[in-house]
Design a protein around this nucleic acid. Structure first.
Lengths: 215, 215, 215, 215
DNA sequence: TATGAATGAGGTTTCATTCAT
DNA sequence: CATGAATGAAACCTCATTCAT
């Protein structure tokens, strides 16, 4: 073992560093999602992470950078997975979308990604950096992927009309609405993001087997 | 009546008081709509109302009370017309929706309805009262109306599938998404709420004449 | 009396405001001149003025603006006096300068203007705004005035060569040096700004009576 | 001697230590010269020296100690040549000064002498030691030399009046002013130290050949 | 010796709210 | 009723210094 302690033995351990960074991100995630961006104080994040304020700034340049770290930690890996995924041989785009996105929608709240959407929508206006960040990291790749899939579906004749080609956001609009709804009206009847997504999918992609009369 | 009372009315004048209160509310509405609750400073509201800061506190106990006052004011005007409207004899639901909602969408920003939506979404989390109020006054009637129209359209065979019957919010999801987008990414490319609405309408209501092959 | 209480009777008194402002300036002057710009904390100024920190910002936008206020308070009035002054009928420029500037030099330290020069020189590098401010308020008008007087003296044949015409700062260079010296080597032998100024004056302006052989 | 010891010398090596110390001092000199004491961050010194922050503290107890070390280093090099120089046989003092000082003025900034002067002026107030040291090492010998030259010039009838005899600093006042100016107003119009020095020289030493009318 | 992550006191600025006039 | 100067609690971020490795 000990492949390459290299020129690296002196000084503090890089492993500890990674652990600290993770602790900060975990604490920040909790704080941001419960209270929002503005209301979260760096001091609270530090306290929750069991660190001093200054330590935060050793790992993240400022509050926005910290939020970006949280955002990346939460969505980058999954998003990369999605982006890498592609319809299997002979798989219809509709089926692919269902297969891939259903799990994502299902744990929208459990994974706290829904909360992130709500935070961005709620505070993006006052903190444009946050909106820009979310757009760059999540929205842009997402819409690009949708656009590519729409083109593929269109080529295969799987698409109804040109709606999705012209307006890729149509695919996710119902999901966003449902997520916001569930945040605003936490009590009472939640909106079923998954069901709405499937309904929208049925509108965008005619279901071959069951509705043979349609294009 | 009572001609402007000599410019120096001693003692309280209920009329004058009401006018001051209205001025404060108008100013506060403007300020809250662009910037939200936290970003709005009492000093700005006072300045816009042409009053001193202290005067605000004579009429509203604190910032939250002022916000509440604004919300109440927001309740009186809206909707009205829309709820009463109904398809004309023989008018297709799709045509009716286009006829009625297109103007609404077109001046979404000019009429500040877009800003109101954004305010509700942004502050609804911290002020559940505003979310509940908006739901009661705007959303519930709106969804009820959509539901009724969906039923009527279904009965007339104008509907594609059961999407809208089961999920009335689908009709407005793209509009909401566009409005939020335009709030978050004010600069750069705005999203065309009207175009997205029409695209969604085409999905929900097959266009008989032009696409005869579809159901 | 009571010429015009006008529309002005309500609310806090403007007289009190002026007194507060003056108190802030007095406190700030003391603090700035003893400790410099960077080392002076707004909290200390407030405390010395017997006010809360926030009050400072009611009268001065920030620390730099406060310093500018101090600077203006200290030099603007005297400077305006100097600028307004002009050689009397038939008075030689040399005599005018002696008459006008000798008192200024004499109370350079008592008036604390020497300390201001030292502060600007010492911290102007780190706070360019301060240097720019001093240049705008003191140096530029000063050099302009010197330039004008030099031109006048040259026209009257009172000048030796073109040194002062080409390099107006030459007139004050010895004074600045003396002021800095006296700041750095407070103990020990002070440099006599007045004597050096007069010597420089003799160099720049040939003394008609006593040295008839010179131009 | 002792070829670079295998890159991994165990135990302390006095030579290595000295080299590290020198590197720190060199880096600190650079940093202090541009920015002064307060603006210089230990982290920057460490980075420039290619060391870790902690290493600085192994060699210097704190920032002040480091500053003191730099000052001591500043003492060794300078002057040297100038003090030894003397007018050649039959050379006028004015010509001697021009010959000797012109090059010094010309590379005032390149040689960082200007920066040293500014450092002394800027920090001398807070660190009397540096002012005293500079006075002892640079100013006192300098003024002594000027005094001697003035006496010699006076004896030879090369001097205008007694200005320089009584106030040796007059010779350098314009240069100091120019150097400070160029530090404060780095941007914009620099002041030409050399030109001002020559102008002052012309005032102090009548130019025999070209202005025969003057004494 | 050298490292660099961690510390935490400290400073400027903002702004909702109060209250004497 | 109206005024607006005064308040003071936060909040973000910096950086000299320490110390386990």
């Amino acid at each position: 073992m000990e492949v390459a302690p290299a020129r690296r033995s002196r000084g503090p351990s890089p492993e500890r560093t990674a652990r600290t960074r993770a602790a900060i991100l975990a604490a920040a995630l909790d704080e941001f999602l419960d209270g929002g961006f503005a209301a979260t104080r760096m001091a609270d994040v530090a306290a929750r992470a069991g660190l001093a304020k200054g330590t935060l700034y050793l790992h993240f340049a400022d509050k926005e950078a910290l939020f970006e770290g949280v955002l990346r930690g939460l969505v980058e890996a999954p998003l990369a997975g999605l982006a890498a995924a592609a319809p299997a041989e002979g798989e219809a785009v509709r089926d692919f979308l269902l297969r891939v996105l259903r799990p994502v929608l299902r744990d929208m709240e459990a994974s706290r990604r829904g909360a992130v959407i709500r935070l961005v929508v709620a505070e993006g206006g006052r903190f444009p950096a946050i909106a820009a960040m979310y757009r760059r990291i999540v929205i842009a790749p997402g819409l690009a992927a949708i656009g590519a899939l729409a083109a593929r579906a269109a080529a295969a004749g799987e698409l109804r009309g040109e709606a999705l080609l012209r307006h890729p956001p149509l695919l996710v609009a119902p999901v966003v609405l449902a997520v916001l709804w569930n945040g605003l009206f936490a009590a009472g009847d939640p909106m079923d993001a998954e069901a709405m997504f499937e309904a929208q999918l049925d509108l965008l992609f005619p279901v071959r087997g069951s509705h043979p009369a349609e294009t």
